[in-house]
């Protein structure tokens, strides 16, 4: 336990000193601001691009539009930045050989994986909460009176999907020598999940619906109970990926 705390501290120190934390925080802050403002100015933008005399009816933007931006921007930009930043979290240690010393001195290998996973999850959680808070604040500022269904649950779904991606990155980092391997594994699995999503029967059990189906939850088209399967599968997936990463890492030659 003491080595776990010490190693996790070292991980936090490292992400701070490599400016990765700084990048993630700014990206998610900017995303959080972008969401409501994009929803707000889109009608005006369209208006100013229209040729003279042409009129199209655009509905007045609502708080729902702002959250629609949130649930399209965070998976598309936020998660991609997250995966790119964390893709080297394991492999940079291998390429620099910094782990060998620690492991021969008795640091257990499962501690390494768990510490890195804890650190990346904590950073993702913090960035995500920040992004959510900023969007929430500005949405409340622009459209104060409206309330949204299921917003908390919907936000939780997307958060869980981010954790799943981080677990896949850990496995990818153990499997491959360079950081592109982890990137490839993560994006490959996401593509597979998207393909699986074509089959209607599997949609309710597909973790990707946690990141893509949030709007249906907000508008009330889909009940919360429809997401239970996907959440269970996602949780099982996270545990399975981390355990297999630990098992494989124990067998890996340094």
């Amino acid at each position: 336990m003491r080595s776990y705390i010490a190693f996790t501290k070292k991980e936090f120190h490292e992400i701070w000193s490599t400016y990765k934390f700084f990048i993630l925080i700014t990206v998610f802050l900017l995303l959080g601001m972008m969401n409501p403002i994009t929803a707000k100015i889109t009608p005006q933008l369209l208006d100013s691009f229209m040729p003279e005399g042409m009129v199209i009816a655009i509905a007045e933007p609502t708080a729902l539009d702002s959250w629609m931006q949130f649930f399209s921007n965070v998976p598309q930009i936020g998660l991609i930045v997250l995966v790119i930043v964390f893709s080297g979290v394991m492999t940079s240690e291998f390429s620099r050989g910094t782990l060998i010393n620690l492991l021969t001195k008795g640091l257990s290998r499962s501690t390494v994986i768990l510490s890195k996973f804890t650190m990346s999850s904590a950073v993702w959680t913090l960035c995500y909460i920040l992004c959510f808070a900023v969007t929430y604040f500005y949405t409340a500022y622009f459209w104060s009176s409206e309330s949204i269904n299921n917003i908390g649950f919907s936000v939780f779904c997307l958060w869980l999907f981010g954790i799943l991606l981080l677990a896949i990155i850990m496995l990818g980092g153990v499997l491959f020598k360079n950081s592109y391997g982890g990137l490839l594994l993560t994006s490959g699995l996401v593509v597979v999940l998207m393909l699986v999503n074509i089959v209607p029967n599997l949609q309710n059990y597909n973790p990707i619906s946690l990141a893509s189906n949030n709007m249906a939850l907000l508008t009330g088209d889909v009940p919360i109970s429809d997401f239970t399967g996907a959440i269970v599968i996602c949780g099982v997936g996270i545990i399975a990926f981390i355990t297999s990463a630990i098992i494989l890492f124990k067998k890996k030659q340094m």
């Binding site: 400016y19 700084f22 700014t26 802050l29 900017l30 601001m33 409501p36 403002i37 500005y138 500022y141």
Partner: peptide, 24 residues
Amino acid sequence: EYLPFLMPLLIIQLILLITALIHV
């Protein structure tokens, strides 16, 4: 109307620019 939004954006942009420039 957009000032509460523009100010933080400008500040973040400046912070990014200055930290990166110092590092370079």
